[in-house]
Design a protein around this nucleic acid. Structure first.
Length: 640
DNA sequence: CTAGGGTTAG
């Protein structure tokens, strides 16, 4: 410290800039006259002043005299080029320091190398790397980091191996870069054990990189293990684990960790809030999402965060809030537009979705693969066969996007709704991409609605071939057979299920009341108010039956999955959740429910009748679509 | 001179 303050005093008394180095130049072999010395002085000054145009001119002058400045000066100049995106000038500096057989040291070459990496010129970087006579850990790390950022994972790993072979020891920088390049678990476990061996696991960068890659590979258990070992925390480490759970659809754990993080004294930042919103989205927690919104206001310029907020409102059925956020966003990108378009379409506002698509095009934002999906989804929901077909046919020509499996799925849905099953099956045969389980399930849905038994059996078999774990399809297939009195086939399906150990998931519905989540599971009566709920449910069913409601126990071809317990039809979890919502939420409030499996035909009718009789809005989100029940009608148009 | 975390569909 003393030395520094001494230097400062010297500098101010001599009115020199501190950043100016005392040693000015490394001289070439040639004689340097007093005139060229001042040229060099000038060059150095311009570099430190970050005056790029003058520095470049001065560099030209010293080059003509065959002299070079020191590495620090050039590194300042290159920083300046990087800050201004001046690639051309950067290349000139590169040529200059290599001119007339001069060779920069490893430090300066690393900086040049990094410059090419920052400009995403990996080939140039590689060429420079290849001609370096000496490569230190920074050299290797720069290349590895460049390759992992470019997703050239094999290259990154290959460089790590090469580096080790040449006896250069990786440091924490190296590990945190190369971890992102892990393609599989075996790579990762190997790297992890080397990290433990050299004791670098306590570095926060390495820790967060480990957590992140474990969770990207779906190994949340390992990610949490690494997290739990943490002694001194760091915001990014917290964000890594919270993001890991949020992205792996374990919203509960993400939210729990979010609370712990705040308790540990780390204020959330943009990244934290984005993950927390994603967790709310997955759990359909509109009220909690609204609370998070308050914190988002501090970061109103953050596009990613606002997109996450927008999506939360869309997915939680808060369309008005979504629209509010959307109109007020300072900046909108493809994701913002796509989110809003899909959100409108999924919630039954097809016309609005298509209008928004129009505005998007007018605003000059280019639609992408996902945008078109939302558009096609809107068309199929509104029964706009012509429009949907048009967009599908011309998406390549208009937007340069090749239709993928999901686009075909939308069109199959579109044709299916319109009852054009022959065309739908023809399309499946003509698809450029392989039909998958989702494709066939879409067709199966159409067969169910239009009661095409033979085609339904074919589609169901295809689904099960591609996804042998799909309990709902087994049930549906067995119901179809039962309905046609094909008892041998029924027995066979049941046997297959048993042999494969397929068990149907119990139906479960969640509703958020007073910031608490209430879960209703079929066959579970642990809710404290279950007796009252059942009493009111029975009363209501009685009243509905007086108005002509007939509990629909004939599931065949009406129920794609449902809760599959014919005898307890009246206790399906969504019915319990609706009643509970009616009991606890004031009349003008929307009853919002999330379900783990698809709604059955009977509950669908039940919800429609309630919406009319009680004049209440009910929104049920199942795993694949939204049902807005209002005044006796559902936004899905009775097709799902 | 080299390093870590977040958004749309499925």
């Amino acid at each position: 410290m003393k030395a520094i303050s001494k230097l400062k005093n010297m500098a101010s008394s001599a009115s020199l800039s501190l950043s100016r180095p005392f040693s000015i130049a490394t001289f070439g072999s040639r004689y340097v006259s007093a005139g060229s010395f001042s040229l060099l002085d000038e060059f150095t000054n311009f570099c430190y002043q970050r005056d790029l145009p003058r520095a470049m001119k001065a560099m030209d002058a010293i080059q003509r005299h065959g002299i070079w400045a020191d590495s620090i000066t050039y590194s300042e100049l290159i920083k300046c080029c990087l800050a201004r995106g001046a690639l051309k000038e950067g290349k000139l500096v590169h040529n200059h320091v290599f001119s007339n057989g001069h060779r920069p040291n490893t430090f300066l070459t690393n900086i040049l190398l990094n410059m090419y990496v920052r400009f995403s010129l990996l080939d140039e970087a590689r060429a420079l790397f290849d001609q370096m006579p000496e490569r230190n850990v920074v050299t290797w790390t720069t290349m590895i980091s460049a390759y992992s950022n470019a997703k050239l994972n094999d290259k990154a790993l290959e460089f790590l191996i090469q580096m080790l072979r040449e006896g250069v020891m990786p440091n924490m920088f190296t590990y945190s870069s190369v971890l992102r390049a892990c393609n599989g678990l075996s790579n990762l476990r190997q790297l992890h054990s080397s990290i433990l061996k050299v004791g670098l696991e306590s570095d926060v960068f390495v820790r967060s990189a480990l957590i992140d890659i474990y969770s990207k590979l779906g190994e949340l258990h390992d990610a949490q293990g690494v997290f739990n070992e943490m002694v001194t925390g760091d915001l990014v480490v917290w964000n890594s684990i919270i993001g890991g759970f949020a992205q792996n659809t374990d919203g509960d754990e993400a939210l729990y960790l979010y609370k712990s993080m705040k308790r540990a004294g780390f204020p959330p930042d943009q990244s934290t809030l984005t993950s927390v919103l994603r967790a709310c989205t997955g759990l359909a927690l509109l009220e909690l999402g609204r609370q998070v919104h308050v914190h988002v206001l501090k970061f109103d310029r953050d596009l990613i965060l606002n997109n996450a907020l927008l999506d939360m409102y869309c997915k939680c059925g808060g369309l008005e809030d979504a629209n509010y956020v959307f109109t007020r966003m300072l900046e909108k990108d493809v994701i913002s537009w796509s989110t809003m378009i899909a959100g409108l379409a999924q919630n039954g506002f097809s016309r609005e979705a298509l209008n928004l698509f129009q505005s998007m095009k007018e605003s000059g934002v280019k639609p992408n693969y996902i945008t078109i999906l939302g558009v096609l989804f809107a068309c199929s929901h509104a029964g706009l066969v012509e429009d949907g077909w048009y967009y599908f046919q011309s998406m390549k020509k208009l937007f340069g996007i090749d239709p993928g499996r999901e686009h075909y799925g939308c069109i199959i849905d579109l044709l299916g709704r319109a009852g054009k099953l022959d065309q739908a099956i023809k399309l499946i045969q003509e698809m450029d991409c392989e039909a998958d389980a989702v494709t066939w399930r879409t067709l199966l849905g159409a067969c169910r609605v239009h009661r095409k038994v033979d085609l339904a059996i074919h589609a169901a078999k295809q689904v099960l071939k591609l996804d042998p774990e799909d309990a709902g399809t087994y049930i549906l297939l067995s119901n179809i057979y039962a309905n046609s009195q094909r008892w041998d086939d029924v027995a066979e399906v049941r046997m297959t299920m048993k042999a494969r150990g397929i068990r149907k998931e119990p139906g479960c519905s969640w509703i958020e009341v007073n910031k608490k989540i209430h879960a209703f599971i079929l066959g579970d009566s642990s809710h404290p108010q279950i007796d009252e709920i059942n009493r009111q449910l029975n009363q209501l069913i009685h009243r509905l039956m007086g108005l002509g409601y007939v509990p629909d126990t004939n599931f065949v071809l009406q129920d794609l999955e449902g809760e599959q317990r014919e005898d307890s039809l009246r206790y399906h979890s969504e019915k319990l959740a609706i009643i509970y919502g009616m009991m606890t939420l004031s009349r003008e409030k929307t009853i919002r429910i999330r379900k783990n499996i698809r709604i059955c035909g009977d509950c669908h009718i039940f919800a429609k009748l309630i919406s009319k009789m009680e004049q209440r809005t009910v929104v049920i989100r199942d795993p694949i679509r939204y049902h807005h029940f209002q005044n006796g009608l559902c936004s899905c148009g009775d097709y799902w």
